[in-house]
């Protein structure tokens, strides 16, 4: 399988791997996907009182494209407001990483993960 250089870079050097304490009121956690489907993404955001995403981290069980997609969005959401982050489209992710058609679902999953994390954060407030 031929991966783009950007996918390889994120796969080899994933950004922001880790976990935040989910009990922290400023943390929103989004977990999407299923093991049986071959990918599970957990994206966490740390939101300031002004509603800006200060930090983000992820862990992903999945193929190289799934890992790269989640790694990329942790970079992208940082510094964005919740509304700005929610506006990130899977097509932007797919384009940035030059994902082949069979891997588009990885970018969809990453978009879902952002939305799930935001929803989780909002449910706490």
């Amino acid at each position: 399988m031929a991966y783009s250089d950007k996918v390889m870079d994120h796969y080899e050097n994933p950004r922001n791997v880790g976990s935040f304490d989910n009990d922290d009121a400023g943390v929103g956690t989004g977990m999407v996907g299923a093991p049986a489907c071959g990918d599970v993404m957990r994206l966490q955001i740390k939101v300031s009182e002004e509603g800006v995403i200060e930090d983000a981290c992820f862990k992903t069980y999945g193929c190289g494209s799934a890992i790269a997609s989640s790694s990329l969005v942790t970079e992208w959401v940082k510094g964005k407001t919740l509304d700005e982050a929610a506006a990130i489209k899977n097509s932007d992710i797919a384009e940035e990483l030059a994902l082949p058609p069979v891997k588009i679902h990885c970018s969809v999953l990453a978009e879902d993960a952002i939305k799930a994390a935001i929803t989780d954060y909002k449910s706490k407030h």
Binding site: V17, G33, C37, V40, Y61
Partner: peptide, 24 residues
């Protein structure tokens, strides 16, 4: 495994078969 949320859950003692996964 350091990258895997499933590994984390396993280490926390969560039985993955009881987890409600989101469909996609």
């Amino acid at each position: 495994r350091d990258l895997s949320p499933l590994w984390d859950m396993h280490k926390e003692g969560i039985d993955l078969s009881t987890v409600q996964w989101s469909a996609h």
